[in-house]
């Protein structure tokens, strides 16, 4: 199963083994990773699961879809080119080792 590493705003890191097909958000929330709030539970409706994807993974992860793109405009912490809503990134073997930094503000 693919690993994903979450980097807290203060630099602390935690690595979790994700279930294939689960989103980066689901993996974090179920395991109590702080900072990913995910109020809407992954419906791309709240923008409280904002992460910055490690640049080296951006190609594999890809950019946001249209709705997600608009949601990111309203995210609490300003977006960058590496911003994604973590509920919209599904884990798979190809993303093993993924690193994401959690936005310091979500609401």
């Amino acid at each position: 199963m693919p690993n994903v590493t979450y980097i807290q705003p203060d630099g602390k890191e935690i690595t979790i083994e994700a279930r294939d097909g689960d989103s980066v958000m689901e993996t974090a929330v179920r395991n109590g990773v702080k900072g990913i709030i995910a109020e809407c539970g992954g419906a791309c409706a709240c923008a409280t699961c904002h992460v910055f994807v490690d640049e080296t993974f951006m190609d594999k992860v890809g950019g946001p879809g249209d709705l997600e793109d608009d949601m990111l405009d309203g995210a609490a912490e300003n977006r960058t080119d590496c911003s994604r809503l973590s509920c919209q990134i599904k884990m798979n073997a190809g993303l093993d080792g993924l690193r994401v930094r959690i936005a310091s503000e979500q609401v």
């Binding site: 929330v29 179920r30 395991n31 109590g32 539970g41």
Partner: peptide
Amino acid sequence: QRPPLSKAFLSGESDEESLELRS
């Protein structure tokens, strides 16, 4: 989570375990 019961769970895009709120 209940919301997906009438959405992604019904359509088969998510399964029971992924709806769990905490492990």
